[in-house]
Design a protein around this nucleic acid. Sequence first.
DNA 1: TGGTACCAAGCAAGCGTTCGGTCAAGAGCG
DNA 2: CGCTCTTGACCGAACGCTTGCTTGGTACCA
Lengths: 195, 195
Amino acid sequence: MTQSKSPSERRAHLVQLAGDLFAEKGFRATTVREIADAAGILSGSLYHHFDSKESIGDEILSAFLEDVLTGYREAVRDTADPRTAIEQIVRSSTANLSRHRAALTMLQNDWNYFSGQPRFAYLRTAMKEIEQTWIEQLERGKQTGQFRADLDTRLTYRLLRDILWLPTSWRSSATWSTDQIIEGLLRLLFDGIRA
Amino acid sequence: MTQSKSPSERRAHLVQLAGDLFAEKGFRATTVREIADAAGILSGSLYHHFDSKESIGDEILSAFLEDVLTGYREAVRDTADPRTAIEQIVRSSTANLSRHRAALTMLQNDWNYFSGQPRFAYLRTAMKEIEQTWIEQLERGKQTGQFRADLDTRLTYRLLRDILWLPTSWRSSATWSTDQIIEGLLRLLFDGIRA
DNA sequence: TGGTACCAAGCAAGCGTTCGGTCAAGAGCG
DNA sequence: CGCTCTTGACCGAACGCTTGCTTGGTACCA
């Protein structure tokens, strides 16, 4: 049953376990006792591995944003065409989101909680870079004539980023595969719903 | 300053006050003491007007869903054209959402909390009707040839409904007016971002 | 023998909620 | 009019419970 893990793997396993709970209920709504229960230990024993509940959240969030930003940077570095860049952003995001469901649930549910604390200042920094990347690509698309000239880039960015991050919370039923969602999203994005 | 209110208006005023807090921080994250502070009374005194914190949430949520469903029903009753119906749904929704910001924040932040309780079973019922309305209109649009034949109606519904409900949470900056958001949304919806 | 991983017990703070009491504003009545 | 009696709105203080976190001790493995 209890397979003996390597020293540092044990810690990563606990983060994984906590993340699963955060993804389902959010960060604040998850108690340290629930995390401990999932690991089969008592709540106090968690503090042998972490110095606070927040630092577990910190580990999850910073790992997520690192991956996301890496994906964004690669997307705009490798491609000159804005449409291809956006498509690349969407694909890398979707891959990241399915791997970091916990982080996104935390950002959606507990943004107020985290963004207020100095410790999580990097959240705002990362969001700024994400926003700027989107807006740059949308502006470039307008200039090349690929996107509508009357597009409000900031409004469109907010809509698109949030849309992109939505399906992660569709925990309820695994009705659609990741590929299906990407496909539907990109079609909707570029073509709308009209025939 | 303190204008003496009529007997039952006082209760509605408290609901309004609580709703403002719920809209900013969510339901669970708001304490009864904060609500009482906003009203200038002690937390215990709230229980002269309500028998629980939940019943305040109940009042806000049920009023919201009533308005939303009314809007949906009128939209599909008055119009034969599916595109016009959807446009009507979007417009009525947007009006409702700006009037019931608290309810939407609660649904987004505390859905797990509410949907589990028997008292809030009507939430699931209402969501079912909303889903069915969307899907019916999308299907009709496909049959008339107005919408793409390859549209996954359920996936498209989930995307569209969530997109529609997103801007409500953009409390941060009042950068865009309601009309701007509707306009951007409908253009994106029907035409995509391409030129 | 020393360090890692854990348990058992408990603390302070905060939560929603309860409860006895106060007090001003009317209603009823002689 | 003056006197009770009632009532709605609120206070002050507490209750029981849950929260994140701490502490002292112990089994075990290298």
